[in-house]
Design a protein around this nucleic acid. Sequence first.
DNA 1: TTAAACTCTCCTTGTAGGTGGAGAGTCAAG
DNA 2: CTTGACTCTCCACCTACAAGGAGAGTTTAA
Lengths: 134, 134
Amino acid sequence: MAAVGMKIGALAGRSGLPVKTLRYYEDLGLLPAVGRSEGGYRLFAEESLRRLGFIRRLKTLGLSLEEIQNCLAVHDAGELPCDDIAIQLGRQIERIDGQISELIQLRTELQQLLAGWQSDPVRSSTVICPNLQV
Amino acid sequence: MAAVGMKIGALAGRSGLPVKTLRYYEDLGLLPAVGRSEGGYRLFAEESLRRLGFIRRLKTLGLSLEEIQNCLAVHDAGELPCDDIAIQLGRQIERIDGQISELIQLRTELQQLLAGWQSDPVRSSTVICPNLQV
DNA sequence: TTAAACTCTCCTTGTAGGTGGAGAGTCAAG
DNA sequence: CTTGACTCTCCACCTACAAGGAGAGTTTAA
């Protein structure tokens, strides 16, 4: 039975996140360990990988770790959280709808820009090329 | 002719952003002023409001100010940036598509959660109610 | 023409989200 | 049973994105 859990280095390797960050998340309560080994090593479940994916997803959407906490609290509860959380969750969904709208608008803007100059490839390069490593 | 531009306080009032933040953005080059008054006061165009909207939109999508800079550089150029920027922009659009997908997925997850407990309003409150002020 | 409100620059501070390193304990392979 | 890799805690430091405040100059309305 390999059900005991993996150590932090293994989780780091599989998730792509640095060990430091995982410890940081665990300290914040974002990423609970299933327990500790005899020697005091954190042990994580497979589930942690899925959880990190969820966190990553929410992070790229611009949520703070604290907001992600709240989402995860709901997620972990599975059901019957208090009213505050329900309201909270409703707002989060509205926020998501707003973001989707904005993303679509932004996508249109960027694509128009892209289309705009592709139809006119004059004086093609070296005109504008500032710092970029997005 | 009121075409001279508004002072920073007016822009703050109309955009809802603090004066400090506007100065910060201007210092970074994110929000160019049309110029300075005789007394050295920054003067902003109406356009700045639209620009701040664009910035806000990108910010809520989790882009850093530096990334926003790059988008604005493209935006300002209007056309013919160098190849790097074109590639950059293409990636940004892909990223947006990815984000839209993730948002939709997330929305579904949250809504299922919401629906789940609303159909079973047992032991309604005080069970879970951690720190929340999102 | 002067007081209040606004703005300037420059410098410090604060918060979020990590990152680095010291010093010590634990584990696995040889 | 020792050596090297891994992990622990604790504390300092870092970057991004501002917010606070001092001290001085500018504008405007009474």
